[in-house]
Nucleic acid binder design. Sequence first.
DNA 1: CGCATTCTTGGAATTATTACTAATTTTGTA
DNA 2: TACAAAATTAGTAATAATTCCAAGAATGCG
Lengths: 143, 143
Amino acid sequence: MTDHKRYSDSELTKMIHSAGLRPSVQRIAVFSLVANSKKHPSADDIFSELAAIYPSLSRTTVYNSLHALVDAGLVRGLEIDCGNRHYDLAPQPHHSHFICRQCGRIFDMAIPSGIGAAASPGFCVDSVDVYFKGSCPDCVGRS
Amino acid sequence: MTDHKRYSDSELTKMIHSAGLRPSVQRIAVFSLVANSKKHPSADDIFSELAAIYPSLSRTTVYNSLHALVDAGLVRGLEIDCGNRHYDLAPQPHHSHFICRQCGRIFDMAIPSGIGAAASPGFCVDSVDVYFKGSCPDCVGRS
DNA sequence: CGCATTCTTGGAATTATTACTAATTTTGTA
DNA sequence: TACAAAATTAGTAATAATTCCAAGAATGCG
């Protein structure tokens, strides 16, 4: 998640609605997980958690919802862990993440400032991601 | 690729050898493609190019070679394009890439300095990647 | 040269994701 | 409330990238 605020369903509904999407139950549930989870869940994480609550939920619906939310600009896909996309609430202009190579958890990091302007002339940049990898505090010291 | 030098097979062999790997024909071929290609090839790109030369080459060998080279620190995997890992010669400490959302090409970018130090205390960072996305100069202006 | 180790191969198996389609639900309108 | 149109869902099948595995081949050391 992006900050410590907890988003209520009605807030999320409002955001979904004003992004021009229909606030279906499933979409709200997916959005809520992404927005409120401390982890940066993958599609599968989301499916697993929600399947317990909505037994009829389909994986496809999770993917559809995520795509809709990403296209609407509400959610952002992280590509820090190739072949295993994780999702995060659509960030402030720039955003930075850290993945622990040992436990696999993804953390938010403060963003080094001034990065946006670093692209070469002629390139039109619409997003910047900074990915750090290494060992998180819990795992430092283990082999 | 990382600079404009062209690496000869014997140089590559030496690098592989001093990294503690056996310089097999396949590994040298894979390494040469990564080190000397202007593109940042994916495993499949590499397989396609080499399969024309070595008809018996197996996809698994390409993956094995890439993993060996990455583990040895000679090659680096880019996760800029999720689900389609691309490879680059192991870089200078920090590195930055740009992917064009339209043509899919990946470009090297100058790296904003001072990024490495930005991680939160307690985290042990062993790599930093900065990924820019947008339109490259050739594609800017097209819808 | 002989042997142990490491590497390569090819196919099968996994995993994440996308595509397709029918059934269901929601929405707007009368 | 009733209905038609549009959007969403669920489930199955298909794809694509990658990994696993067991057998055969190459390598390098003694």
